[in-house]
Write a protein that binds this DNA or RNA. Structure first.
Length: 484
RNA sequence: GGCUCUGUAGUCAAGCGGUCAAGACGUCGCCCUCUCACGGCGAAGGCCCGGGUUCGAUUCCCGGCAGAGUCACCA
């Protein structure tokens, strides 16, 4: 049988990385076997719905390469693929009524106030289990309430005794007491289905074979199982993915600042690096390999190798991986992406391509660029202590002398390019008995005012050009003369 | 608090009864080097605890403990 998986987000904002990974795994499970990956929009909560969120979902899926075979924009014959549209067609109510007829669900007219009174607080958390109050209503009473137009919901009727067992591909068989199963709402008073219900109905109607979701649904899975059984439907293969947590081992929340794909893109991460990184959070390949393109993941992915324990989202490693992608990146693409950041720091008419090349192996994320190259624009105010370097055997005094010595040489240098400059300075050093570092350190300091730079002295001379370089050296000589 | 899940270095994570317990990030050291980075080499660091089962447990079982998830007319 052809595998069919789905990604079923609710349009409430940016795409959480946990959801992104779930989508990725669902995609990989399907594609590894040549199956279908569908997109279904679960917009049953009109309150939480955010304008433009569907666009974000589409854009994210496109940027990450998780292209769906069926969805709102690609009819595969089991649509519509948007739950609010399905609701309009009366699909959910129709199925809910079937359950009522079977005694597997019932109408509930309880007021919000009554429901509120059922809540208790444990450890600061409100918990609530419905007491089946409305289950005792007679058919006539229900009819009458309905006729009166009283607001109602339809609840699942779960047994109070016995146990329910369901099977998860990763976690195995899980058995719970039915007494733990709340009579969850299937149809809300506004006529919309809850996630709990719509999910089951749609997964069945759309022929989903493998349900991939986060493991926060693990505890409600038995209730979904009972729904499938009540309908007489085949239960899909469940794959509950382990949670992704923050550094405190808590479920990753919006507050962490990097919880969504778009947050990460805003911070300068590459979509392919994020996908690669997230794939490895909770899954590992057979080999030691860590760098994977999406097609490679499709080839390698075996969902049986998904781990069961939660994984901390490690920004440090993501940064490393992003840096790896940047280093491997084709220069033209790199330059296109780097240019805006270079321009943020540099307004002079310098050769930005040369500067981009300097920075390519040194950044992990594009926003690292400005702080690394801003000295090209202007030498920052610096302490002359920078001229002291033990290994180079130099200090402000020697630096001053060196700069004075080397200044006329640079002024006379015809070929002001990196290689030529290096040769000239090296020759000068050999003549004087200076080591290369002894010469380069003061020059680089004078040029940049920085302890570390993304390039050597001669490369900086090259980019700055003779005029600006001499200006900076003169300024340094002046500064040093005043202080030494 | 009930229920459920999880428990290999700071983090990700191999392992599926016998291993000097892979690998990666990070950390530290060395090399390379006109600084830094890249690259190369190396080091430190781990099987939650207690019982079993077994000739032998990181691995299987039980019990603790710890962490997490969940207990909505949110998904």
């Amino acid at each position: 049988m052809k595998i069919r998986t789905r990604y079923a987000p609710s349009p409430t904002g940016r795409m959480h990385v946990g959801n992104l990974r779930t989508a990725l795994y669902a995609y990989l499970i399907a594609k590894h076997e040549g199956g279908d990956f569908l997109l279904r929009i679960e917009d049953t909560d009109q309150e939480r719905e955010v304008e433009g969120a569907v666009d974000i979902i589409n854009r994210t899926l496109e940027e990450t390469g998780l292209v769906h075979d069926e969805g709102p924009d690609k009819d595969g014959g089991v649509g519509p693929y948007v739950q609010s549209e399905r609701q309009k067609q009366g699909i959910y109510l129709e199925y809910a009524k079937k359950l009522v007829e079977k005694g597997e669900a019932y109408y509930c007219f309880c007021t919000p106030e009554r429901l509120e009174s059922l809540k208790t607080v444990v450890n600061g958390e409100e918990i609530m289990q419905y007491d089946k109050h409305c289950l005792s209503l007679t058919k006539e009473e229900v009819e009458e309430n309905l006729k009166k137009g009283l607001p109602y919901v339809i609840r699942q009727n779960n047994p109070r005794t016995g146990t329910t067992t369901f099977h998860d591909e990763l976690y195995g068989d899980i058995t719970v007491d039915n007494a733990e199963l709340d009579d969850m709402v299937l149809i809300k008073s506004d006529g919309f289905p809850t996630y709990n219900f719509a999910n089951v109905v749609d997964d069945h109607l759309m022929g989903i074979t493998h349900v991939v979701r986060g493991n926060e649904y693990l505890s409600s899975a038995p209730k979904y199982n009972r729904l499938y059984d009540a309908f007489g439907w085949e239960v899909p293969v469940y794959v509950h993915c382990p949670l992704i947590t923050d550094e405190n081992h808590k479920k990753l929340s919006k507050r962490s600042g990097h919880s969504s794909f778009e947050d990460l893109v805003d911070q300068g991460f590459l979509p392919e690096a994020v996908v690669n990184f997230v794939a490895l959070l909770g899954w590992s390949p057979e080999s030691d390999e860590e760098m994977f393109t999406l097609p490679e993941l499709v080839k390698e992915f075996d969902y049986h190798r998904i781990s069961k324990s939660p994984a901390v989202f490690d920004m440090v490693k993501l940064r490393w991986m992003n840096g790896e992608y940047i280093k491997k990146m084709d220069f033209e693409r790199f330059y296109t992406l780097a240019e805006p950041y270079l321009k943020k720091a540099i307004a002079r008419p310098l050769d930005l391509r040369k500067i981009a090349a300097m920075v390519k192996t040194r950044i992990e994320v594009f926003p690292d660029i400005p702080a690394m190259v801003d000295f090209f624009q202007e030498v920052p105010d610096y302490d002359t202590a920078l001229y002291t370097h033990k290994k180079m055997k130099t200090d402000p005094e020697k630096g001053l002398a060196l700069l004075q010595e080397v200044r006329p040489l640079l002024a006379a240098q015809e070929d002001f390019t990196n290689d030529a400059l290096f040769e000239a300075l090296k020759a000068f050093g050999e003549e004087k008995g200076y080591k290369t570092g002894y010469i380069m350190w003061p020059i680089r300091t004078a040029l940049s005012g920085r302890e570390t730079t993304p390039a050597g002295a001669t490369e900086i001379l090259d980019v700055l050009g003779r005029e600006e370089s001499l200006k900076r050296i003169d300024a340094a000589i002046e500064k040093l003369s005043a202080e030494v």
